[in-house]
Write a protein that binds this DNA or RNA. Sequence first.
DNA 1: ATATCAACTTGACACCGTCAAGTCCTTCAT
DNA 2: ATGAAGGACTTGACGGTGTCAAGTTGATAT
Lengths: 205, 205
Amino acid sequence: MSRDTSKPRHHHGDLRNALVQAGIDLLEDGGIEALTLRKCAARAGVSHAAPAHHFGGLPGLRAAIAEEGFRIFSSYMQEARRQGDPSARGQLKSICRGYLRFGLDHAGILTVIFGNQGLASLVPGRNQETADAYQILREVCAPFVPEGGHCRVIEFQVWSLIHGFTLLCLAGEFGPPRQALETGVFDQVIALLEHLGPPDPALRS
Amino acid sequence: MSRDTSKPRHHHGDLRNALVQAGIDLLEDGGIEALTLRKCAARAGVSHAAPAHHFGGLPGLRAAIAEEGFRIFSSYMQEARRQGDPSARGQLKSICRGYLRFGLDHAGILTVIFGNQGLASLVPGRNQETADAYQILREVCAPFVPEGGHCRVIEFQVWSLIHGFTLLCLAGEFGPPRQALETGVFDQVIALLEHLGPPDPALRS
DNA sequence: ATATCAACTTGACACCGTCAAGTCCTTCAT
DNA sequence: ATGAAGGACTTGACGGTGTCAAGTTGATAT
């Protein structure tokens, strides 16, 4: 027996998650401008002020979506590492490719994650998924850290390069975004990574 | 004899430029969220619908601001090239530094220029200032293009690296943004450029 | 059975972008 | 000089938005 839906129900049960999912759907459909507290509420079938109750306001909703978005991002990174050539360079190339693919697949989520005030302010102290994604970057970069060098430098270099490339692709600066993955432009750009310090011989393919 | 300001004047004379400047001021003060047609109008002392008359709507205002913003960006690039070490690598480092400095000085403008839909859609066919800024990048990258290589590849690599680093700095991913310029982190990151192809001997310092 | 309290609704407010209609002022043809 | 034309700007209205205060519902604890 299904519940009566003709009258407003006051305990949705899982409204918070439903609102986050509704927000992600709006984001994927209409971009960052379409993400609205009231539209989230309407899509979840609740009153217009319900989201504010759970998230405090629009920034809170964005933070919750960023958290979930990072979970998706992390899954892209893990999948990329699984699929990539097992060599150190193959792994690095593959996660860069995964980064770009995530950006093209989920441009709106990327905007929310790294948008405006940045992740740092959205999710103070980070969360598990953030740490997971960054850990993958660390691991894949590790073989390229020169003896006595700072691992952060390599990570920052790789992160900056692929992040910038992804955003400029989305902005259309390199031509039609989808084309970037299919043509060789992407491979040529990350070819710069070939010039990184010599990978650990133990991990060389 | 100054004009009567007690009654609304219907021909401002230079309202379009005044509105763009008001918009830039709003952007610098309160970030991208503070850029509003009505606030622009108020700051310029005109009615709330005046901006729409000149720019068609909010996207049009953003496009006009992006155009002016690119002029500022271009001046940063030119100044950087003037100040940099005259060697090919010194020039490259200096314009990267100029890019980052522009981002830190004018985060809101950077957001408008490369935000969301990207410059490509904002200024179809680009304009002179856009071409100027890109020309500087091309010139500074030229010595690093390997024989028979595609110059676009080097340009895309450099652009991606510095763009990504700037945005991640602004997002706070590398710690307090201002610190990035002062400490050596920035130099370490763009040290990746040291691995670019050998500069033209004629331009080597 | 009753009190408590979180979950959600309702209603209001100010601000926003946009549109239609109106007013002012310049310019240009006569 | 005069009048038509039209651009520059105003006024007023509309629906959508975030946020707040107050109310209502329903599960839970006593």
